[in-house]
Write a protein that binds this DNA or RNA. Sequence first.
DNA 1: TCCTAATCGAGACGGTACGTCCTGTCTTGGT
DNA 2: ACCAAGACAGGACGTACCGTCTCGATTAGGA
Lengths: 212, 212, 212, 212
Amino acid sequence: MTSAGTPAHGTRHGRTGRPRSAEADRAILDATRDALVELGWSKLTLGDVAARAGVAKTTLYRRWAGKNELVVDAVAALFDEHLELPDRGGLQADVEGVVRQFAALLERPETKTALMAVVAESTRDPALRERIRTAIVDRQKALVLLGRERAQARGELPVETDPAAAARTADLIFDVIAGAVVHRTLVSAEPVDGAWARSFAALLVGGLTAGA
Amino acid sequence: MTSAGTPAHGTRHGRTGRPRSAEADRAILDATRDALVELGWSKLTLGDVAARAGVAKTTLYRRWAGKNELVVDAVAALFDEHLELPDRGGLQADVEGVVRQFAALLERPETKTALMAVVAESTRDPALRERIRTAIVDRQKALVLLGRERAQARGELPVETDPAAAARTADLIFDVIAGAVVHRTLVSAEPVDGAWARSFAALLVGGLTAGA
Amino acid sequence: MTSAGTPAHGTRHGRTGRPRSAEADRAILDATRDALVELGWSKLTLGDVAARAGVAKTTLYRRWAGKNELVVDAVAALFDEHLELPDRGGLQADVEGVVRQFAALLERPETKTALMAVVAESTRDPALRERIRTAIVDRQKALVLLGRERAQARGELPVETDPAAAARTADLIFDVIAGAVVHRTLVSAEPVDGAWARSFAALLVGGLTAGA
Amino acid sequence: MTSAGTPAHGTRHGRTGRPRSAEADRAILDATRDALVELGWSKLTLGDVAARAGVAKTTLYRRWAGKNELVVDAVAALFDEHLELPDRGGLQADVEGVVRQFAALLERPETKTALMAVVAESTRDPALRERIRTAIVDRQKALVLLGRERAQARGELPVETDPAAAARTADLIFDVIAGAVVHRTLVSAEPVDGAWARSFAALLVGGLTAGA
DNA sequence: TCCTAATCGAGACGGTACGTCCTGTCTTGGT
DNA sequence: ACCAAGACAGGACGTACCGTCTCGATTAGGA
């Protein structure tokens, strides 16, 4: 994965005045992750984050609109760093790989406590939903798309010619994979181990190839 | 679905004194749902709920430990009332049915804003997780188990003899169904319409029967 | 001097609910005076007062609208306790007495730093001005009126029959006495000692009796 | 009255470099007076003054230590411009004149809200007190001294030979005049009209001449 | 003509206090 | 024993100013 680090807060409002400290951004996001681990989402306070980061509260509010936006950016950085999909040689193996990778991120204490919380908030805040989508969800979805392309190249999956149908299928697969992992991890609160990943991948690959 | 309504808050500590008002319970849960619809999870306050219910805050705290527990009970009542699985004659149709039913509940504004929020809280509160499981999750899972039994009776699915393996499979199927619906509804924020339910059910049934 | 102590904040809004703590009122006013002595008007903060009083900020704001009102009440209590006018047997002696009494109050660090500050604020806040008048100024003025009555009874001053003219004269005398003491104490920043009080009283008594 | 305008802020630290803008000083003091009229002392902020003056906050802080000093200078300029004492031919008339002149200045909204505020601050800040004395009080006192000299020249007042006693008497008269006007204007919040000025002057002149 | 240095605007910075809101507990009097 | 009402201690909120700082851009006098 590439890019970002600290995603754009809009590119320089004016050209005059003291420039914003890049280090402050980094310190704030680090402090946010630390506070999430220690306190969890609901006990995390922006005043505490600012104190941990050695930064004034105003500096924090100058950059982020609130707790939701800050936490999305803090968690997004993790997804940015830790998502990749090496070619494991087959569809089943690739699905297992992506499942374990999602799970590894979701089992971190920072993301475990934060992700569903911001998703819950996003049900009443379209801007937040969009921010989650671009910062987190789309990065995950890219892996699913990549895996499908490889499977098609290998001949494991048929090539869908209608682009709308192709998009619908990709969305479906993504919801199934991401949803199953999230549900297993957060709702059922059971670990995603090798056996589960294998069973799930078998079920999915079976379903995808059954129609052929 | 049967039972509960207002599940036990422990059974009457002493025997004397004025008994608790049953109407208060109902009014509080109704007010909670109303407030969820109007304000969403994060802006809902217990003082406001008490005021809407025409009840003192003390009365509310005497019955529930906090916002999390109250909301779980308020939402659970909806799952209690609206989940059932009529026999639609085949596995594919039964899956479609359960999917649409989950989705109908998740698309209500009360549950949409509340469910992921309490799940997020539950990652740091085992008692809350247990409460969610017994009040909500297990009610959903019962439908999946029922559907499987019917499918096995019809011969659409093989009968698993090892009970541990049977439980693992049931858990997997449940995480896939519930997770996919949740992810579609809350993360992707797309509706679960007939077409999607059909595609998903086909994928799942294909996967389940592919190994045979 | 009699009455008040903690002047009315309106007499009980409703009759139900937990009654307001009378001790809190006392602790807050004590803490306010302490803070005025230590920090002065401009560095006094309501949060600090609340902390000193062992009281939540909300308790303070429930009773007073802001710093101005609180300080007026805190200072007024001093005027309430320390103003009285024993009959010293003659007009000159009575004037000296009242002058020394005003001065003694104004030279306290609490009042020195606070009184002009709230008067300054009152120039833009009629409600505050009224509060100062009833809580502080009128108590002082009563002494002047008492002194005049005694002087008239002794035959040192003529009896004014026109009540409007009598009021005008009383106002004038009051502004001269209080103004001179305030100016000497706060603007000139010189002490009001026996010599000054004697000279001032002589000047005033001379002026009052010159026309006769 | 003569002099000053913008009194020295120390005389050029180094000799090279860009010189300070004289116009900035003027703009800042004008803006300060405007802000005092609009907002009053307590709501006046230096950031707002800087913005009104079209000047950076830094420029303001380079010249004044804080709000107190700035406001003293801003109102001092008014005293500088508007105090003078034409010879009205008699002590009573001169006293009336000086009283009305003080009152006219104190009844301006800028001075009304600011003067007592800085005096209040000065009770805990000797440097500020000194600044007020030299910038404002001494200018007023000069008028009182001038009036006394004239009265002595006219034979209306005796010539005091002991210089210490003369100074004490002048201070007393000044505290009485200035104090009475301030108290009438700011505490009693009544206008200083012709009738009041006449009554007050009669009282004072009566007192001054009674001993003779 | 360049150089040096203090000025200027802009605006971000670490802080502090604000006044409001919500939490969960408590104290009333009344049922 | 329960209830409605509402005061209580505590603590986070997001905003507003404070006085300081860091920028790049002027604007002089002295070299």
